[in-house]
Nucleic acid binder design. Sequence first.
DNA 1: TTGCTAAATTTGTATGACAACTTTAATATT
DNA 2: AATATTAAAGTTGTCATACAAATTTAGCAA
Lengths: 251, 251
Amino acid sequence: MSPQDVNELISNLFPRIHNPLSLSQEIVERIEELVRQKKVLPGEKLPTEAKLCKMFGVSRTSLREALQKLNARGLLRIRKGSGIYVTDYHAENVIKPLSLFLELNLDRNYLLQVMEIRRIIEPPVAEIAAAKRSAEDLSKLEKNCNDLKKCDPHDYIRQGQIDKDFHLNIALASQNQLIPIIVEPIFLLMPKIRSLVYERIDNAKSSAITYHDRILDKIRNSDKAGAARAMLKHLQIAEEHTFQILADLPA
Amino acid sequence: MSPQDVNELISNLFPRIHNPLSLSQEIVERIEELVRQKKVLPGEKLPTEAKLCKMFGVSRTSLREALQKLNARGLLRIRKGSGIYVTDYHAENVIKPLSLFLELNLDRNYLLQVMEIRRIIEPPVAEIAAAKRSAEDLSKLEKNCNDLKKCDPHDYIRQGQIDKDFHLNIALASQNQLIPIIVEPIFLLMPKIRSLVYERIDNAKSSAITYHDRILDKIRNSDKAGAARAMLKHLQIAEEHTFQILADLPA
DNA sequence: TTGCTAAATTTGTATGACAACTTTAATATT
DNA sequence: AATATTAAAGTTGTCATACAAATTTAGCAA
């Protein structure tokens, strides 16, 4: 039996006591649990750092690192000179990570997957928007369509942004708060791609104008099936444009 | 002219220099930018804390709080005694916040929105799964269906989990990596609700078994339209069950 | 070359101090 | 009495230093 084997045997009998969590991480999880169980509520003020240190029995260093972690994740807000507050957990805290994920992982393969998701989600969302849109939603969409028409034909970046806003406004018009959370990160990458399309494909803008108008018209008339159809067609054409760009682009 | 007016005038001329960002937050954004621009890549080791302190010209306290924030958000991994490493940005970092968001905000209203999203996404996902599923996907689904049949009829929690896994496996079978990211947080809340349904609605389990089998069958036979139809029907029935529960439940 | 040991390196935690900001309490003014 | 103003107290932000705990590196021995 080799010395290594002996060591292994001993370490199996007496498994190492190692606290896998640092103190600060332990505190993070304790406070997070309080938030999850709603034992502390948004707006509520937590005890001061000094008091929390005493309660947890840790130094201010460890406590602060824990608080900063929770702050970074959007669960706490720390106001200098004032105190530590529980925050509402905003949609922002979901949108930012999803955006970052897409931004860091976006390649040809992911782009295909993004387009597939858009094809799945956006037509039925347009359908719901046609059923539930408010007057305010309509006027926002109308303004957006006008903006696109008026936009300087060479300002490709702006065109990409207006395009993005059109689709986001439809998501908002669905009156389902979860839908924007899911699609907004996807739309955030659109301007980058769309402005390339607008720059290099001649009829891209006129196609977008035509279809945006058509979709808006269906939504205005509460034509649910029509809105879904128009959106799907619009996405299919936009995908073709995107493929043309991709073919030209370097690996 | 009152002293206040004078003060105001002066403060307009010489607007206060106030760094709205704390030092640690400033560092967070600097490092985050390096990651976004891929100037540092996953796996790469950053300089040691001591060196970073010198480079940024801040104390170790401020630097560490920044590193801990980035660690909490999943961009860095810090290994005691070893160093600071850039991580690749896992789907986990998206799924966790979305799950927390749903958990904290879930009420009757949100539940309706969750059901609406499922109705939008899952039928076309089943359709794609029918087209793209691997042999391995099929066997996982088959095992899952058997598990549900064999499951102790009174173990409502387990039934809820098996149910969740069935739907998640279909999402995975779509071969689109973004779909599980979106639906997994939604499915994570299912067991809580489903186990109530299984407990209180007599034919809930038999209905689930019937439809899971039917969906699996369509996916096995690559019957795209059939898979989508079966999934939609399944969801509609499950929704009815959920509504019956909701009617009984206290506000 | 391999395995062990010791030293050096590096992150984790604790403490004390002061700065910067906010809140509260006391004071002065009208 | 009500309202500003000011001062004091309270609270978070940052710095410096020290040591603990884990890992890595280098040196030594078989």
